[in-house]
Simulated assay, not measured.
Amino acid sequence: MPKITIACFSLLFFLFSCYSKAQTENKVTNKEPHSTDKGSVLFNTNKADCISLPFGYSDLSKRKTVDSVLSAIQDENKLKEIHGLQFEKLIRKDLVWLPEAYDVLLPFSTSVNEKNDPIKTASRFLCNGDYSVYFMAVYNTVRYAEPFIEKIYLVSTKDGKLIDMKRIYLNHQGEMGFANYTLFNIDENKIIALQDYELTENPFQLKPLKKYQILPSGKFARYFDKDGSFKNDEEKGLVKNHHKEGKWIETQPNGSLDAQKYPEFTDSYTYLEAEYKKGLPTGTWKFHKLLQQYNEKTGEPLLNTRKKGSLIYTETYREGALEKREFH
């Protein structure tokens, strides 16, 4: 089977360095790929292998209980449909840098050997005009005898260059019955819907459904059904042409900071003053401490107590790309 070269995935490393632990340095330079002269990305380009839409879990709105979520995860027909994408091309894990949504750096832990957690790209893909979107799966073979797909990413490419990626599927089995799941659906208009679920002591948390759209640039951006003012427990701002526009306030967990290296980062959340243009980050983003109180019994944050604290660091974006990060 063809192998994807180190040169090409070095480009992917730079593209997503803003998601990796390398972000904890004072300044980050994010290089966009300009050429694939030193090696070609060996993705399938046969249009006959384009998938039909919709694809995924079309009934996400009905999955609101533990039993309904587990039945979806264990649905043999859906698993066959996903495996029908034909994940055949193996990628060496040291050639790929994958952003994680639950603060676990697998499959790049030094305790995991090369035979475990294989990463594969699928032969079948999503066609969309000038760019194509490929599926990439990460298999879990560490804790279970029978390998299973733990994560699936969409990887967008344009003119042979790797542009952006988004995790769309998660089946993460934790300790003591705790688990994190993400189910997805891609509709006829190529709008990607993602629903996150978390099984904890609570015991079940249904997180807000989020939608994404692939922009003409090949980058993924949040998509909203309606324009105008938007506000929920985590973010607020203006939606224009279905995307974030202008100033936004976001109070969400921030997993990119090392609390030991930066002891002033005393909470897993930050208070972010962000700015967007046509759905993409722009200008200077300001990350502050999030001052908040917690429920003594459940440990959950009390949303009405959230306030902006001191400035921790800033990020500077240009045309959606991170140019530098500075700590204060």
Rank of each mutant, 00 (worst) to 15 (best):
C127V: 07
A137H: 07
E250H: 06
A7C: 05
F9Q: 12
L311T: 04
Q252W: 06
N202P: 02
D59Q: 12
T121E: 06
K286D: 06
V41P: 04
K166H: 01
F327H: 11
Y102W: 12
V104D: 15
E100L: 05
G39T: 12
K247H: 11
E146I: 12
R124C: 06
F178L: 10
T65D: 11
L290A: 11
L79D: 11
Y153A: 01
C18S: 14
R318M: 08
G299R: 01
V96K: 01
K286E: 14
G255P: 03
R222S: 10
K277W: 04
F178E: 14
E175G: 00
L85C: 02
Q173H: 10
D75A: 07
T266C: 03
N295Y: 08
D75F: 03
F14P: 00
Y19W: 10
Q173V: 10
K78C: 04
N113M: 04
G39V: 09
E175V: 13
E319K: 14
G39M: 10
F184L: 02
A72L: 05
E25A: 08
P263A: 02
I186E: 02
F327L: 10
C18F: 11
F204S: 06
V138N: 00
A221F: 00
Y197V: 04
V155M: 06
K62D: 15
K31H: 14
Q293I: 04
P118S: 08
V28E: 15
F204I: 02
D159E: 15
I119K: 01
F287M: 09
K240G: 03
Q74V: 02
I186K: 04
E81N: 07
K244C: 08
S52E: 15
S256P: 00
F220E: 03
F14L: 11
I119H: 01
F9R: 10
N295A: 06
S111V: 13
F265T: 01
F108N: 15
K289M: 05
A7G: 08
M165I: 09
A137K: 04
S61L: 08
K38P: 05
E323V: 08
A7S: 14
E150P: 03
Q205I: 13
I163W: 01
Y57A: 08
E198D: 11
K21Y: 11
